[in-house]
Each structure stands twice: as structure tokens, then as C-alpha cells.
Simulated scan of single mutants.
Amino acid sequence: MNLYLTCLFLLFVSLNSRAQGTDTLVLWPNEVPGETEARHPPVQTANTSGNVTRITDITDPAMVVFKPKGAGNGAGIIVCPGGGYNILAIDKEGYEVATWLNELGFTAFVLQYRVPDKREQALYDLQRAIRLIRSSADYWEVDPARLGLIGFSAGGSLAARASTQFDRQSYPIQDQIDSLSARPDFALLIYPAYLDEGDSRSLTPELVLKTDTPPQFLFGTADDRYGNSALVMAAALRDKKIPVTLHFLAEGGHGYGMRKGNVAAETWPGLAEKWFQQLILKDNRPLLPR
């Protein structure tokens, strides 16, 4: 990192004692693009049903960083929790997933993107997060050419949008960091939602696939009311000859994370680990030339 980026980066890093994360990275150093409210901490909702911690009213987007306890594999993953673009299921689809990724050697970044009802601003936040990590990749010991996404439900929608709109500068340029690529190198969409908002439940129009759309892993179930999203996205990727892996179970529902007691929740992590080994971690090489 040059001196400018180093100084700017240090402004973003503060110690964090929540969960098992080591640091919190604030995404925006000055004004938050597209935000009308003053910065304040996320608000935890009173709803803790299903033993899930839900946060909302996010005006100061950030990432909580989870580092591997041992030697890392050099790859990084941004975790996008779901919650209908209204809340974030921050533990079930965030911190718990990051802990699992650490066990596989990944450095994980749990994204607190803007909610409620701020889909466009959420994309700003994820694009900025990708660039911010790349700007300090040496610090985090992450290969900037092996930085991916994993998203759940609405977080899967957000990851799909970032995987197809990386060449669109969605927000006003803030600093040198925004000159870096916002293209993720791979994406995992776990029970994704809102990918079939086109005519007759076809692919959502904003999800325009290109030859350099990154490889994708999709997982869903037939009894999920959003299950068509994974099927439509997988078909579109296949038609464009983008590497895609789809797993679809008969049952499991929606919003199960990776907690025990649900067949889908107990199945997808093992399949994802095999996919990582076959595609992401093979020979420690970038997936596509940048």
C-alpha cells in the first residue's frame, strides 16, 4: 500500500470485541453516499425468534473481520447475511458462517450493508467493500485475485448483483480506492431470493451476465418459496457458459443458515467445501486473468 492508502486504511480499523471478529472496517471515510441519516451504530431488533440476532437501521456500513486461527489459504470471502433487505440475520448468516470459513483457511469479512429498504445503497456498500479489501490485501494476507462472496437470501441477491454489475460505478468516486476493481472472483448464492423478478419469473433484468461474470455455486430447495431464483440464475449462467454448480434438494425451506437439525443446512457446507477445493483453491491460482 502506498502512504495515502495506508493512512486512509488506518482510519477505518478499530478493535472489535463482538462475536469472534478481530477488527471492524468502516467502509466510508467521509460522507456515506446515498445516506440521509446521521451515522450511528446498528440497531438490534427485539425479535430474537429462532435464536437469531437481527440488526437494522444501518447508516454506517462496515465489515467485521474474521481471521483464520492458523495459516490461511490466501483467499478472502465477504459474507452477506440475508433478511429481506430489511434486517440482517447477523449471527446465523454472518458470524457463524465466517467462523466456518476460518476453519477452512479463508479470511472472512461479514458485511453490515444498509437496511432497511436500501437495495441500491446496499450495492454501493458491497462494491466499496470489495475495493477496500483489495486496497489492503497485503495487510490481510489475502490474494486480491481470490476474493469472493457468499450471500444468503437477500444477501444472495446482493452477491448476484455485485457479480453482474461490477463494471458499473454505482456510487460517486470517493478516493483512490474506487479505482480498483469491484469484480468478485467467485460467488456462492445460498437459498438466494429476488433473482427471478423478470417477466414470467425469469431472470431479474438488472442481472446482466457477461463473459467475465465470475464462477458461481448455487444451493436451494424445492420447498423454498424463493427456490426458483437459484434455478433461473443457474440456467442463465449455463446459457452464457459461465462456470456454475447447482445443488437443489427436495426440502429444507428457507433461512436455515448452517445450523444443525435441517437437512439442507447440514448438506450445503460440505458441497461448498468440495467446490472450493476443486475451483477456488486449486494450485493457488487466480480464477480468471484480471
Rank of each mutant, 00 (worst) to 15 (best):
D175T: 01
L149A: 04
R161K: 13
V208C: 11
A193L: 04
L189Q: 08
L231R: 12
F109S: 14
W140C: 02
T164M: 00
S157T: 08
Q127F: 09
D199P: 15
D175L: 06
Q216R: 04
P215D: 07
W140I: 12
L149E: 11
W100Y: 11
L209E: 03
D138A: 13
R225S: 15
I173A: 13
S200K: 15
L104E: 14
Y191S: 04
L180E: 05
G156C: 03
L195K: 00
A154S: 13
Q112G: 13
Q176P: 11
Y171A: 08
Y124P: 11
E103P: 11
E206M: 15
T204Q: 03
D196G: 03
R128F: 10
G227D: 09
D212Q: 15
G220E: 00
E206C: 07
V110H: 01
Y194S: 09
A159I: 08
S157H: 15
Y124W: 14
Q176W: 07
A234T: 04
G227W: 06
K118E: 12
L218S: 00
R128Y: 12
I190D: 00
A187L: 08
D199L: 10
D138L: 15
L126C: 10
T107M: 03
A187W: 04
D175V: 05
R201T: 09
D212P: 07
I150K: 02
R168C: 12
F152K: 04
R201S: 12
A154N: 03
D175N: 13
L203R: 03
P214Y: 04
L218D: 01
V110L: 04
Y194C: 05
R225T: 14
R161T: 13
W100S: 13
A98I: 05
R146F: 01
A137D: 02
P192I: 04
P184M: 11
D185M: 10
A159R: 02
D143Y: 05
M233W: 05
F219R: 06
A187P: 05
I173W: 07
F219D: 02
D223T: 03
I173G: 05
D185A: 14
T107A: 11
T204G: 04
L132R: 09
E103G: 12
D138R: 14
G198A: 02
P172V: 02
